[in-house]
Design a protein around this nucleic acid. Sequence first.
DNA 1: TCTGGATCGCTTTTT
DNA 2: GCGATCCAGA
Length: 746
Amino acid sequence: MILETIEMLNPAQREAVEQTEGPILILAGAGSGKTRVLTTRIGYLMKEKKVKAENILAITFTNKAANEMRERVDETLNDEDTSAMWITTFHSCCVRILRKSINKIGYNRSFVIYDSSDQVTLVKDCLRELNYSEKAMDPKYIISVISNAKDKLINPKQFREKYKNDFSKSKIADVYALYQDRLKRNSALDFDDLISKTVELFREHEDVLDFYRNRFRYIMVDEYQDTSRAQYELVRLLAQGHQNICVVGDDDQSIYGWRGADIRNILEFERDYDDVHVIKLEQNYRSTQIILDAANYLIKNNIERKRKKLWSEKKEGELIKIQLAETEVDEAEFVANTISTMVRTGERSYKDFAVLYRANAQARPVEDALNRAQIPYNIYGGTKFYERKEIKDMVAYLRVIQNPQDDISLKRIINVPRRGIGLRTIEKIEDRASLKEESLYSVLIDIDGNSDISRKAKASINGFVDIMSTFRSLKQIYPASKMIEKVMDITGYLDELEKDKSEESQDRIENLKEFISVAMEFESKNEDTSLEAFLTNVALTSEPNEEEEHADRVSLMTIHSAKGLEFPVVFLTGMEEKLFPIARAIASMQDTQIEEERRLCYVGITRAKEELFMTMTGKRTLYGRTNHSVASRFIEELPDDCVERLNKVQKEISYSKASYNMLDKYTKKYMNTVNKAEMAKKANATIKQKTDIADLDNIKLGSKIHHPKFGTGTVVAVKGPDITIAFDNQGIKTINKEYTTIDVIK
DNA sequence: TCTGGATCGCTTTTT
DNA sequence: GCGATCCAGA
């Protein structure tokens, strides 16, 4: 069975499956069948190499990917028990490890997990405690700095040391230290902690690390280009020793740099491990050759990448169609009309189409047009189930029941529904708690001994403590679903919603019912049905169950969320400078940011199997302002023979200058904050990095060359088919000789 | 404690 | 253009 499956693979895929020992880097281009390779590899390990399920660890980024992989592994290994195999996300993997041993680094094993809004609340509390004003220090910014530090495994102490000469960063260091302290006191971890605390645990307790090293003899990491430094280190620690580490990724699809993904992890894998096998999966099973040509041609404009060239056995296919519309309304109408026509003629059904955009704000006019044309659609993004107020309230109750030390959750629900415990009272409780270095809940328990709180407030507090302790004893006998019901009932939360006949309240009741059934489903599917397990599941999930995937509807989503998906027909909308690439990336004047935008465009293009439309407007109203549009540089970067311009899309050649002049006040202001020194450093780093020199044909180091687009320049590095050239006027670029004709100047 | 008007700010998002 | 958030005042 498994050998037959392997027979069907192409040589590169096959090598990736059969090379089971030692470090392997699989560079898997878009649509090259990497999930298939990974699942077959796991099957091969078990069937042919007789590796036990429990010795295999497969890590993904999303629950969706993990579930999908588990399903497909079970399909491949229909008669084997794979339950001991860990196929999980980074975060679940770490939670599992931490729940077992985090007490060794001084945390409570029944910690709760804080999401981003809990982080905001906690940082605001910290700011207040430090007497720093929220105005001067934006909590969201502080969180991003802290999160960044954690991704790089920089703890508060190291952070303070690192920025001791930087005034504003020193202030953030204070917040970071307090924040971390408060998390610990609340028995809480944030998402970043899940990773960094696991690394800390491994570093400080060799016995724990040894245990897992021994257990996970074969490690596979999917979407390796999205790993952060902390995740990288985690994997490195586990793989050290046996070195059976297989990472799969595509540097060209790295689009999460802004949330800590460090592209160096993939670019430097070969340096970090010894005797790395590099396997490139370049055969694409998804798209037509035209689409792949366009994608290849576009992405070669990026300097920092591993060379790959996708090819397909599929025929050439349809040209990429570019449409210029007058406004975003016309653009949306064009999309709707095209879909309508193709469905009417029976060529396509609705589910064959995806409308992709750079920013969620672009969805509105598309929705309107689809509604007018009565086209069914699904829109992805927007408020998540677990972010809804009523759900967060319930979760907060459950958390406090589970872990009374959780001050953040306690404050959320202490007066919800209203029970006469106002801000003043809470402040007094907080003061007392911080004085005694105790949790809020322990102050509440003996509130009677507190002199400066009114009798009325004390009565309310005692009432609250009473119901909470009732819940805590009910927890012993009831599963989570029943607990939610009890909380809704006993606290009067449901009553209050039912009294209010507004549509909003009715929706909330519906959502709470949904939440109960989510809990029931969880209980029927899992062995561990404890409240703690349920809360962990909730924290690590954004949507409870993805249904309706097979409905015949058009999909609307950002390009980011389309990653990993494919559609017969794709519309890439808003192909305009300042929208795509987004204004901030242009304004930053940093190549890395434009390159990430370009990769995003690459991801968008490679979602299409058969037909690709790109649309842009002449003028666009966004965020209440109307601006003239300039064609995206990414349109200009496509090869002419892959493209058909449906109407007169003007060829804007001087896009960079034009768009710079058109930058609005907001962008220019942002631009001023860009650190010039950093840019210079970046330029130097690029030169230094390319020192691997090979003498190839007549182009060598120091050669003067002429490029049709970028003019004259000097070769500063040669690596395989790539040559890096310092152009006289266009800066440094790496170019693949296979794509461009370059003249050598004597 | 609640309210309504002013003000802000605005890319992407999973865990 | 629009929603979230803030803050003054009842």
